[in-house]
Design a protein around this nucleic acid. Structure first.
Length: 211
DNA sequence: AACTCGGGGCA
DNA sequence: TGCCCAGAGTT
C-alpha cells in the first residue's frame, strides 16, 4: 500500500475523531498512564468523565498513596473493574516512588514491571507520552480494522505490527493505534460494521462486503 | 487456553 | 434482559 493512501486515511480519521487528540492532551505521563489503565473494557467517554475530577484531586504518585484504596475505588467506580484498577494504580504509584524517583519510566522494560501495565498499555504511554515509537500496540480492533483497510494480509500480531510499522509514519504511531481502536469500536465493528456511516468507505477495499 | 474482574452501552 | 467490551493477572 502506498504511503500516501495511509497518510490520507490517518488524516481523515484525525479529523473524524478530534477528541482522540484531546484525550492525549494529559499534562504528564502519569495522567496518560492512569487514563490508559482506566480505559480497559470501558468507553473513553467514561474515562474522560472520571479523570476530569480525578486529576484535580490527585497530581503526584504520593497523592494516590496517601488516600485509602476505597476512596480511589469510588472515584473510578463507573469505569468497571474498579477494585483491580484501584489496587494496581495505588501499588504502581508506590513502586514509582520506591524505584523510579516518582517518575513514570520511559522504557518498555521498566514499564511492564508495573502492576496493570503490559505491552499494550506500555506502548500507548511510550509513543504518546514520550514520543518513543518502539512498537505499535496491536489489539483486536487494530488487527481487524487494518486488515479490512488492506494494510496487512496477515493474522499474526507480530507480523501485523511489523507491516504497520512500515506503513505508518513514525510520528503517528501512537495516535494511529488510538484512532483505529476508536474507529473499530464505533464504526468498523466486528459484527455488522456500519459501512454506510464510515468516513473511509470509498477508500476501503472491504466496504459493503459484509453479509 | 480458560477464567476473573464489572459497570455501562446498546439491541 | 442479555450480550459485549480501549486489558492484565492468575492458574
Amino acid at each position: 500500500m502506498a504511503d500516501e493512501r495511509v497518510n490520507k486515511i490517518i488524516e481523515i480519521l484525525k479529523k473524524e475523531y478530534p477528541d482522540v487528540k484531546i484525550a492525549l492532551n494529559y499534562s504528564n505521563p502519569l495522567e496518560l498512564l492512569i487514563a490508559t489503565i482506566l480505559s480497559a473494557q470501558c468507553t473513553d467517554r467514561q474515562v474522560n468523565e472520571v479523570t476530569k475530577d480525578l486529576f484535580k484531586k490527585y497530581r503526584t504518585p504520593s497523592d494516590y498513596i496517601r488516600v485509602p484504596q476505597e476512596e480511589l475505588e469510588k472515584n473510578i467506580y463507573s469505569t468497571g473493574f474498579y477494585k483491580n484498577k484501584a489496587k494496581n494504580i495505588k501499588r504502581l504509584c508506590e513502586i514509582l516512588v520506591e524505584n523510579f524517583s516518582g517518575e513514570v519510566p520511559d522504557n518498555m522494560e521498566d514499564l511492564i514491571t508495573l502492576p496493570g501495565v503490559a505491552r499494550k498499555t506500555a506502548n500507548v504511554v511510550l509513543s504518546n507520552a514520550f514520543g518513543k515509537n518502539e512498537g505499535i500496540a496491536v489489539d483486536t480492533h487494530v488487527k481487524r480494522v487494518s486488515a479490512r483497510l488492506g494494510m496487512t494480509d496477515n493474522t499474526n500480531p507480530d507480523k501485523i505490527e511489523k507491516d504497520l510499522m512500515k506503513l505508518v509514519p513514525n510520528k503517528d504511531w501512537g495516535v494511529f493505534t488510538l484512532l483505529l481502536i476508536r474507529h473499530g469500536r464505533e464504526i468498523c465493528t466486528a459484527k455488522k460494521p456500519r459501512c454506510h456511516d464510515c468516513i473511509l468507505n470509498k477508500l476501503c477495499p472491504s466496504a459493503f462486503t459484509f453479509g
